[in-house]
Simulated scan of single mutants.
Amino acid sequence: MVDTPDFEHVVFGSTPLCALLAGLLASAHGRRVCLVGDPHTAFRLHHGFDLAIDVMARPETLTLLQGLTEETLKLINGLGKGLVERIDPLFISETAQSSAGLDHFRHLALAFGYGVEPIVDPQLSAHAICRVRDVAMLPPGRIEPALEAWLDGLGVRRLARSTTEIWLRRDGTVRLTHNDSELTGANAVLADDAAVTTHVPEDQRDKMLVSESRLLLLAEPDRAVPGPLLCWLDRGVSVNQAGRAGIAVVAGGDPATAAQRIGASAARHGALKRAGEALVPALRTADGAPYLGTARNSRATVLAGFGPTAAFFAPAIARYIAGAARSDEAAWFTARGASRGRPRSSVTDISMVTA
């Protein structure tokens, strides 16, 4: 007789996507779910920004994202007030290649009804700047406590990664030890970069996944940022006005050049007084498209490369994992699955350059 696992899905990760995915698997699909990650703390630096748009080239992705954004915001607005901000992010390119991609995105977004406009700012050393109007953003520091309370209300078990021993098996199942109790899960879902890099050795990851580092910085500039969120495509740097706390900066790519790229991106704001800094492992995809597949020699589910829009894909990811995806969603995820060493040329997308 085979023992019934304690959980049908064990989601690993500490981002809003991870919490939303765990909650939706429980609430919308009736699954027994455990979330293993780092509990929210006000002292945790921003690992990224959850934004309902990104520079992209594929119309099928923007079509999917539009519908999912409405679905996600309906859920989040039901969790409390002040959990969604509306901002006008700036996307900045400095080379001919990235400017061509940004121009393609601008025309695509216009066709989909987004308020998109090219702007000129003499103080920004840029080849092209694109502003997107009225974009939903999940404010870091406010969304996490609301999601944790929601999960508790759903009966989703939450375990701190630091106090949990984890064993992933090749068949995708998982065994956990927490406070001398042993728990089991039928399906491991590695839903953020930290989870993937921690539990899947590099030689067992799909070749489409590229390891890099991410420098996180909280700083106090001399002058205000000219917008709530600036994304420098060629530098791989995002700068967010973090209220009275100053600015939160995330820089991907080579850690040896990250500080220099951040300095160039924030040069117009004067000297930066650093209030916090961390270097964390990260992943990107070689073709710029999201990835939802498995590890090599394992059936554990791996998510990577969804960028700032990751949280807004949560409803579709939950349906896909639960075997309830709509036909358009299933086709989209299948095309962005494991490459098995082959190029995914049909889904290649625009990505930030993080040299």
Results as ranks from 00 to 15, higher is better:
F7P: 07
H9L: 13
G13M: 09
A19M: 15
L21H: 10
L25N: 06
A26R: 11
G30R: 05
R32T: 15
L35F: 01
A42E: 11
F43P: 00
R44Q: 13
L45M: 12
L45R: 11
H46A: 15
D50C: 06
I53D: 06
V55W: 05
M56D: 01
L62K: 05
T63Q: 11
L68P: 02
T69H: 14
E70K: 15
T72D: 14
L73C: 14
L79F: 13
K81N: 09
L83Y: 08
V84S: 10
I87E: 06
I87C: 03
F91Q: 10
I92Q: 05
I92L: 14
E94F: 08
E94D: 12
T95R: 09
T95I: 13
A96P: 00
Q97G: 10
G101Q: 14
D103F: 07
A109Y: 15
L110M: 07
F112P: 01
G113C: 04
Y114D: 06
G115S: 10
V116P: 00
I119Y: 02
D121L: 11
A126V: 02
L138V: 09
G141F: 01
R142L: 11
I143E: 04
E144Y: 08
P145N: 06
D152Y: 02
G153H: 10
R157F: 01
L159K: 07
L159W: 07
L168V: 06
R170P: 00
G172Q: 01
T173W: 04
L176I: 08
D180V: 05
L183Q: 06
V189Y: 02
V196D: 06
V200F: 00
E202G: 05
D206A: 01
K207E: 12
L215S: 00
E220G: 04
R223W: 13
V225T: 13
L229G: 03
L230F: 02
C231I: 14
W232R: 12
R235C: 07
G236Q: 05
V237P: 02
N240I: 01
Q241I: 00
G243F: 11
A248Q: 08
V249P: 12
V250P: 02
V250I: 15
P255S: 09
A256M: 07
A259D: 12
A259P: 03
R261M: 06
R261K: 13
I262C: 10
H269K: 00
A286V: 13
P290S: 14
A300F: 01
L303D: 01
L303R: 04
A304C: 03
A311Y: 09
A311V: 10
F313Y: 14
A318K: 03
I321G: 01
I321D: 07
G323L: 13
G323I: 11
A324L: 00
S327I: 12
S327D: 15
E329F: 02
E329T: 03
A330W: 04
A331G: 03
W332R: 00
W332I: 14
F333P: 04
A335P: 04
A338Y: 01
S339V: 11
G341H: 07
R342A: 14
V347C: 08
T348I: 10
T348R: 09
D349Y: 06
D349S: 11
S351T: 09
M352G: 05
A355P: 15
